[in-house]
Each structure stands twice: as C-alpha cells, then as structure tokens.
C-alpha cells in the first residue's frame, strides 16, 4: 500500500515540476507572432498546394500580413471570396484577379492526330519529350502520359483513354497551376473562367507552318488568319503560325469558331448554336459539359 502511495505521489510531484519548468521556459522564449496570421490562415483553404507561389497556406498568410499592398497576391484555390474575407481582416484591398481555370491547348485526340511511332520508355511526359517530339507528327501537342494528372492534388484531372488527352474537371479545378508547371510541352493554360463559365480559346499549340501542322493533326491551327480577320475586337493575334485569343478583349461573339477550317477554336459551355454547327465541334463541347 505504501509503495503505491509513494509511487503516485512522486509521479505527481514530477509532473507538477515538469509542468512548471515548461511554463517558465515557454514564457521566457515566447515569440511574438502577429495574431492576424492565424486569423488569415483560418480563412485560407488549407490545401497547401502552392498555387499562390508560397510554400503552403501559412507562408501565404504571413506574406499577406506583411505586405502593404496585397493586390499582387492571390489564392487561386479560395478565389475572390476567400481573398475578400482575408483582406477584410487586414483592412486591405484584395486583388482583382479574375477566377481562372486550367484549359488544355491541344485537341490532338487519337482520331485527330494519328500515331506514327510508339513510345516505349519510362511513363513520364518529361522523359518522353526530352527524347523526341512525340508519338505523332506534332511535336507541340500533348504527349499523353499524364504527368499533369499526377501533379493534380485535387483530383480535377483524369486521362481520357479514348482521346489520349487529359480532361480537366472544371468544378474541381482550383487553378493552382501544378499541371501547368508539370507539363513539359507547356500546353496547359490558366484561363479566365469567363461569364457563366463560358470560354473561347484556340485548342492548339502547333507552331509549324500550315501544311505540316495540318498533316500531323486534323484540328491543328494552320495560321490561316481567318479568325483574326473575322474578329471585330482585335482579340485574336496570329504569332509564330499560331492563333491566340486574348481573353480580356474577347467579347464572346462566337464569330471566330465557325470560320476556323480545322475547328481548332473551342467554345466551352455555350448553348448549342441554332445555325448548324459542325459535328466534331458539338461533340467537343458536350465532352466539356460532361466533365
């Protein structure tokens, strides 16, 4: 009985002693931290994806507290609302960056872009593209080994086995940019989400001249400039044999897509046009809808 008592008492004493030591040490070495960092961090999505350019949400919160002007800072995951809430805590003006979403600037499906060689090496887009242009005649388009899908931490991408291309699930995509960094061909772009999620963009990255581009892929941009001439807002520029639509200038008039001879311009999430739209195009739009 006595032993039990001594044990309990001595352990209790040790516990109290250790607690006291810890208390004094904690007091002594206390580091002052701006409490707002915690508050801001609580507003952030805690995804730690690095999409903002900082190593994790905490670092981003620190940066926000530190910076006088936070218009350059943006959390792509949380979007405008999160930024507004975080900025409210700090009494600063949030960035006006529009919400973006990742889009694939390539429509070289197995059908559109016939395979002329076979890759047999490590399953990595970077390794494959350091070795050669790709299995098809187009050395700019998607390699199709899914490095972007592996890089996506939000399950917003998957490889479509039929097309051989990655598909971006718009609802899940938080536009962190991990896929953009992962892609060795640089064909994923963070594009303005657009009103009602509607977007028009050139789904091609081929900088070859018209003839070889067309030979390699049925939906390649052949730089015929028809879209540029059609656009009344000067939103389309053809540079290095490739057309690009400026999302800021684009008014979504949808005049460019029908004139494209190769259907390289994609319209996302638009209601189907009353005028007959070429079959492949509607198919693509539907696929986009299905997610």
């Amino acid at each position: 009985m006595n032993i039990v008592l001594i044990t309990i008492l001595s352990l209790a004493f040790l516990g109290v002693l250790a607690g006291l030591i810890l208390y004094f040490v904690a007091q002594k070495f206390k580091v002052f931290e701006d409490p707002r960092i915690d508050q801001v961090e609580a507003e952030l999505p805690a995804a730690n994806c690095g999409g903002c350019g900082f190593p994790g949400c905490r670092a981003f919160a620190e940066a926000m507290v530190k910076a006088d002007d936070i218009s350059e800072l943006n959390c792509p995951v949380g979007g405008a609302e999160t930024m507004k809430a975080a900025a409210a805590i700090l009494g600063k003006t949030p960035s006006a960056a529009p919400n973006t979403v990742a889009v694939l600037k390539c429509n070289g499906t197995c059908e559109n872009r016939p395979r002329i060689t076979k890759y047999d090496g490590a399953t990595s887009c970077t390794i494959a593209s350091s070795l050669f242009g790709g299995e098809t005649g187009c050395s700019y388009g998607c390699v199709g080994l899914g490095e972007c899908v592996d890089a996506c931490k939000f399950g917003a991408m998957y490889m479509d086995k039929e097309t051989g291309l990655p598909v971006i699930i718009e609802d899940k995509c938080i536009s962190c940019g991990a896929c953009v960094k992962a892609c060795p061909k640089n064909i994923i772009e963070l594009r303005k989400q657009g009103p009602k999620n509607r977007r028009i963009y050139v789904a091609c990255a081929n900088k070859d001249k018209g003839a070889p581009a067309k030979k390699a892929c049925a939906t390649a941009c052949i730089a015929c400039c028809k879209c540029m001439n059609e656009c009344s807002f000067g939103a389309i520029i053809v540079d290095k044999n490739l057309a690009a639509i400026d999302p800021v200038k684009c008014k979504m008039c949808r005049k460019c897509a029908p004139v494209c001879p190769t259907n390289a311009i994609l319209e996302m999430n638009f209601p189907p046009k009353k005028i007959k739209v070429e079959e492949t195009l509607t198919q693509e739009t539907k696929e986009g809808d299905q997610k």
């Binding site: 076979k118 890759y119 390794i127 070795l131």
Partner: peptide, 8 residues
C-alpha cells in the same frame, strides 16, 4: 511496323 522510340 510502327517504329518504337525508347531512350537508350
């Protein structure tokens, strides 16, 4: 056959 491309 289709040519195979693989790293050395």
């Amino acid at each position: 056959n289709t040519l195979t491309i693989s790293p050395s």
